[in-house]
Design a protein around this nucleic acid. Structure first.
Lengths: 111, 111
DNA sequence: TCAATACTGAAGTATAAACTTCAGTATCCA
DNA sequence: TGGATACTGAAGTTTATACTTCAGTATTGA
């Protein structure tokens, strides 16, 4: 299914790349310029900028250019969307976990 | 970064495809055979089986073959891993949300 | 028994993703 | 002013992904 790439797709896709998660983890510490972000990564500045664009598009990062420096920081929108997705789907596997818990409890009662 | 595809990668990657999320949503209702799952999807049985393998590898689905029928059901392991990832990262954007909340509160006090 | 059913495996294709290089364009600052 | 810095854009390459087709292999049930 190559069509209809709605937000959830791109959000999970954005989080599916280890470099992008590494960037997020870095930004968790403090806001940072693109080149500073690129320093420990073994890829070109251009590649980092491309990752940042993806992260920004799904609301995981916000960037702002001042002079020649673009400062990047964590944005909450994407994370909230992720939590929302989980909330929307949690009931199901919570029920499954409950069932599991119940099975275990029953096993406790009558082993 | 093409190497080191640890679990988190594959988990998010698995969830990044709309067809796979549709499969999960279907299985949320009830366990189902592969061909039953394939019915509403406009792709071949083979493609569905491939998606299922990916979902199974990351612990989002469990399948079991009895006779010629493979029955698929939701598995909690993957979902728990996802929740764990969120828990591990939540503090950060929670703090950001708190800051935001505080800013808004201050705006309320002195507009 | 034998045809239908329910997958399974191997191999190929087309598009997308993650890179790269190279050539700019603004800033900054000595 | 002029050279370093900090990106930005366009275009090309390589690898992965999401499919496909086609040819099996077990199972099932009339």
């Amino acid at each position: 299914m190559k069509n209809s790439p709605i937000d959830t797709d791109r959000l999970f896709h954005a989080l599916g790349d280890p470099t992008r998660r590494a960037i997020l983890d870095r930004l968790t510490e403090r806001p940072m310029s693109v080149s500073r972000l690129a320093e420990p990564l073994e890829i070109t500045l251009t590649a980092v900028a491309q990752h940042l664009q993806i992260l920004e598009e799904v609301g995981l990062v916000h960037t702002e250019k001042l002079g020649r420096v673009r400062t990047c920081r964590i944005e909450t929108a994407g994370f909230r969307a992720l939590e929302q997705w989980i909330r929307d789907h949690r009931t199901v596997w919570e029920r499954k976990l409950d069932q599991l818990g119940q099975v275990l409890a029953e096993e406790d009662e009558s082993p």
